[in-house]
Design a binder for these strands. Structure first.
Length: 491
RNA sequence: GCAGCCUUAGCUCAGUUGGUUAGAGCGCCGGUUUGUGGAGCCGGAGGUCCUUGGUUCGAAACCAAGAGGCUGUACCA
């Protein structure tokens, strides 16, 4: 009945949340970060592997779409032949699939790095996307703490390669075996209770001791009044879990000692402590600075497939967001040992361990703090002579032939808009050739960065215009050399 | 998913008890005796006031539902 209004065209130009548009600056920051991290992986002897965006849903593991409704968490669709396919949610599951498929032909252990986008169908938020970049290294087919220690050492080196200095990051390490020992110690046999306890532990840094105590016991009320049911442990058990969670000490040796007190003498406790001990010794041999790696009993990580050591890379360095507020970036990567993942395909138990870096967060952190250079735009040749616009094309071509990024202004706007354009493009310089220059056989070159510096001291607009800061006139034959000086001086 | 808050120009926001053609700042575009980016001067574009339905003589304003956003929380292989 009601008149159907056609949708306004601009209302169709909407971007789905969590799928970021990336412009020059961000692209450059992320590519730089991928290069830095993968160069560390390559240096340690890992080889590249790139797999497709989609995997068959059943190859991705527990997320089997049930009939019509693919599970939340992944993006899934049905192929022509009715098979469910899912966009990969990490780079580990495709690796497990690839390793299983090609196991016979691979040199074992298989050491592989990979970088690329992954997709998760979850609620996005600041710093949380539905499409984001990961950069992984994994060793498939190597049991034992040395392979884990190597991952941890490499994670620390990757953080340093990314730009983190002493004390600006920490790799925090724990092992599932100790967590199992604690669960056993408080008699948590029921799966839901075990998971609730682990999730509570994981939130120690977020909610603090009392918040975690609530989650371990009856439950916790958040500030919006929403209530989260707890694990229902009695007071003595809560105390025992907390004692474990807070056993972190200044050095790894002291932490192992404190954990020994908190965790008892069961099989899991003994093997877990031995695992940390072995990792610590290996790290010393690998030359990893002691302060880079801490043992932290509150590290839990994903609940699904980790079987031994788990670790997390945390950026401690403080950065500022666009509004100038201080932001703690927090976790920028993680990993661990997953001995059962490849076995899903092969039946044979194949040990594996790996580490994953969240590229976007790292790039954001180091881009904001100036660790990654901002890119200059092209040199812009202004279109001054409307009777003979081809001169701008010719000059731009000469610059490009000399290997300088350059473009001729496309259009016939006045000079002021053309200057504004060059400014907005972050051009290092503009070239001006009008009738004056043509007659004299020269070009006018304006160094925009130098001009801006000089302009800071100029008060009035009229003076600013007359001063023509940063500008020089050069013989036509010297254009390339002079422009090159300007471009190279500004990186 | 659950809870709270929010939605007026590109952005940040005004908008009287419900009353004509809905405003500002910034930004944007163009010009400034066809030659100069920032802060000068002149001009300009840009809004079905998120959507739909209801109340009313009359709705940007009141009510309901929906959509979108923010924050917290849950989940996060």
């Amino acid at each position: 009945m009601g008149k159907q209004k056609p949708p306004k065209p601009i209302d169709l130009a909407r971007k789905p949340r969590g799928f970021p548009d990336k412009r020059e600056g961000l692209i450059h920051a992320e590519q730089t970060m991928i290069e830095r991290v993968t160069s560390v992986y390559r240096k340690w002897g890992f080889e590249g592997l790139d797999t497709g965006a989609f995997e068959f849903a059943d190859a991705l593991g527990k997320f089997l779409p049930d009939q019509d409704r693919p599970n939340a968490g992944v993006f899934a669709l049905r192929d022509d032949d009715e098979q469910w396919m899912s966009l990969r949610y990490d780079l580990t599951a495709p690796l497990a699939r690839f390793a299983a498929e090609n196991w016979q032909t691979l040199a074992k252990p298989y050491r592989r790095y990979a970088a690329g986008p992954v997709w998760r169908n979850e609620k996005p938020g600041p710093g949380r996307f539905r499409e984001f970049l990961q950069c992984d290294a994994d060793t498939v087919g190597a049991a034992g703490a040395h392979a884990d220690a190597e991952m941890i050492a490499m994670a620390a080196e990757a953080m340093r390669a990314a730009g983190a200095e002493d004390g600006e990051f920490a790799i925090r390490v724990n092992t599932r075996r100790l967590l199992n020992a604690v669960l056993e110690g408080v008699g948590a046999t029921e799966e839901t209770v075990r998971l609730t306890i682990l999730r509570a532990l994981d939130k120690l840094d977020k909610f603090g001791t009392s918040g975690v105590a609530d989650l371990l016991g009856a439950g916790r009320m958040d500030e919006s009044g929403d209530f989260t049911k707890g694990a229902g442990l009695d007071a003595a058990s809560v105390k025992r879990v907390l004692a474990f969670a807070e056993a972190g000490r200044a050095t790894r040796g002291e932490t192992i000692e404190a954990l020994g007190q908190a965790v008892g003498t069961g099989d899991d406790a003994k093997s877990g402590l031995a695992e940390l001990e072995a990792i610590s010794i290996a790290l010393a041999a690998l030359g990893t600075p002691e302060a880079d790696v801490k043992f932290d009993p509150s590290i839990v990580r994903g609940l699904e497939y980790y079987t031994g050591p788990v670790f997390e890379a945390e950026l401690l360095k403080e950065t500022k967001d666009e509004d100038g507020n201080t932001v703690r970036i927090g976790s920028v990567g993680g990993g661990g040992r997953y001995d059962d993942l490849v076995a899903r395909f092969t039946g044979e138990k194949i040990p594996a361990t790996g580490f994953s870096v969240g590229i976007s967060r790292l790039a954001a952190a180091f881009s904001i703090s100036g660790e990654i250079d901002e890119l200059n735009g092209p040199v812009v040749v202004l279109n001054m002579d409307r009777d003979n616009p081809a001169i701008a094309l010719q000059l731009a071509t000469e610059l490009r032939q000399a290997g300088i990024r350059a473009e001729a202004y496309m259009g016939s706007s006045g000079m002021r808009p053309q200057m504004k354009y060059a400014d907005r493009r972050r051009a290092p310089a503009v070239i001006m050739v009008g009738t004056d220059e043509l007659e004299k056989g020269v070009v006018t070159i304006k160094d925009l960065k130098e001009g801006a510096r000089q302009a800071a001291a100029i008060e009035s607009n009229q003076e600013y215009r007359e001063a023509r800061p940063g500008q020089l006139e050069a013989p036509r034959g010297d254009m390339i050399a002079r422009v090159r000086e300007i471009v190279e001086a500004e990186g």
